[in-house]
Computed example of a mutant assay.
Amino acid sequence: MLTDADVERWLREDVGHHDVTNDVPGETSGRLVAKEPGVAAGVDAASAVFDYLDATVTERVADGTAVDPGDALLRVAGPARAVLRGERVAVNVAAHASGVATRTDAAVEAAREVDPDVRVAATRKTTPGLRGVEKRAVAAAGGDTHRLDLSHMVMVKDNHVAELGLTEAIERFRERASFATNVEVEVEGPDAAARAAAAGADVVLLDNMTPAETAAAVERVAAADGDALTEASGGITVEAVPDYAGTGVDVISMGGLTHSAPALDLSFRTGGDG
């Protein structure tokens, strides 16, 4: 949840202690404009910046809206000093979030062309302090947020297995977690995937496998425990999504949706509609 404290921190970072640049009298209006096609996101966060500065957002598109060059994501009016002070922070947060949404949209569409039921999910590879903004951008574009923090699901990784053994690790964490919390087990091959499913994993994470290995692991998991979900992960690009979507996997998770999506090119213009 975005708070006033978040917005204040963003503005303090940008405005500093003695802003002469934006000390402009009078009233003005402005608009946040797309310079390339994409999917809008972070518009709520950009609006919150102007609201905090007592400028009025008069019009805005919903997050998840497809935009073309020249389209306005939001329009704002108010004291020139407030509008100009909020401009750069609003542009930065919306451009970043819209980049995340645009990449997510591309991945979701690539997956759906092969398998309409496969989910494309983000990961916890997010920018500290901006996870909420980035996860909302993923959701706005039709992606799955995955776990929002460590409390949402238990993840049994290779280090846990090395220390405790696969079965003991699953049992240990299941005893300590709520009945409503799933246990996911990370594996690196089809044989290990089958063992994890048989040991009681709710979700089997197929890490750094090729599409062929992923397909084999999906079959092994189904044979061991038909109720366990399968998730493919590990450096999967948008270009590779169709290959993984065709393996029968339930989820494709991609750190690149958040940690390396390029910002959508946006600009802020004041005055008329030119």
Score class of each variant (00 low, 15 high):
3 T>R: 13
11 L>K: 03
12 R>Q: 08
13 E>Y: 08
23 D>G: 01
23 D>R: 15
24 V>K: 04
25 P>V: 06
26 G>V: 09
27 E>V: 07
30 G>P: 08
32 L>A: 06
32 L>P: 01
35 K>P: 05
38 G>A: 04
39 V>T: 15
41 A>Y: 06
48 A>G: 05
50 F>E: 13
50 F>P: 02
50 F>I: 05
51 D>Q: 07
51 D>T: 15
51 D>L: 00
53 L>C: 13
53 L>S: 02
53 L>M: 11
54 D>H: 09
56 T>L: 09
61 V>A: 07
62 A>D: 11
63 D>R: 06
68 D>T: 06
68 D>V: 01
71 D>Y: 07
72 A>W: 03
75 R>A: 10
78 G>V: 06
79 P>T: 01
80 A>G: 01
84 L>I: 01
89 V>N: 00
91 V>S: 01
92 N>P: 07
93 V>K: 05
96 H>D: 02
97 A>Y: 13
102 T>W: 00
104 T>I: 12
105 D>I: 00
107 A>H: 13
111 A>H: 08
111 A>I: 12
112 R>Q: 09
113 E>H: 05
115 D>P: 01
119 R>C: 10
120 V>P: 10
123 T>L: 06
124 R>F: 05
132 G>L: 00
134 E>V: 02
135 K>A: 07
136 R>H: 14
139 A>H: 13
140 A>R: 10
140 A>I: 12
140 A>V: 13
142 G>S: 03
148 L>P: 05
151 S>I: 00
152 H>L: 01
153 M>S: 13
153 M>D: 09
154 V>D: 08
154 V>F: 05
157 K>I: 06
157 K>F: 14
158 D>C: 12
159 N>L: 10
160 H>C: 09
161 V>F: 07
164 L>Q: 09
166 L>C: 12
166 L>F: 02
169 A>V: 11
170 I>T: 03
172 R>G: 04
173 F>N: 12
174 R>H: 11
174 R>Y: 04
175 E>H: 08
175 E>T: 12
177 A>S: 15
178 S>D: 14
179 F>K: 04
180 A>M: 13
185 V>I: 09
189 G>S: 14
189 G>D: 15
196 A>M: 04
201 A>N: 12
208 N>W: 07
214 T>M: 14
218 V>A: 09
220 R>D: 04
220 R>F: 03
220 R>H: 12
221 V>I: 04
222 A>T: 11
228 A>E: 14
235 G>H: 11
237 T>V: 11
240 A>W: 07
241 V>F: 11
245 A>K: 02
245 A>Q: 08
246 G>T: 10
246 G>I: 08
248 G>F: 03
251 V>D: 03
251 V>C: 14
253 S>V: 07
253 S>L: 11
254 M>G: 10
256 G>F: 00
260 S>Q: 06
261 A>G: 14
270 T>N: 00
270 T>V: 15
273 D>W: 14
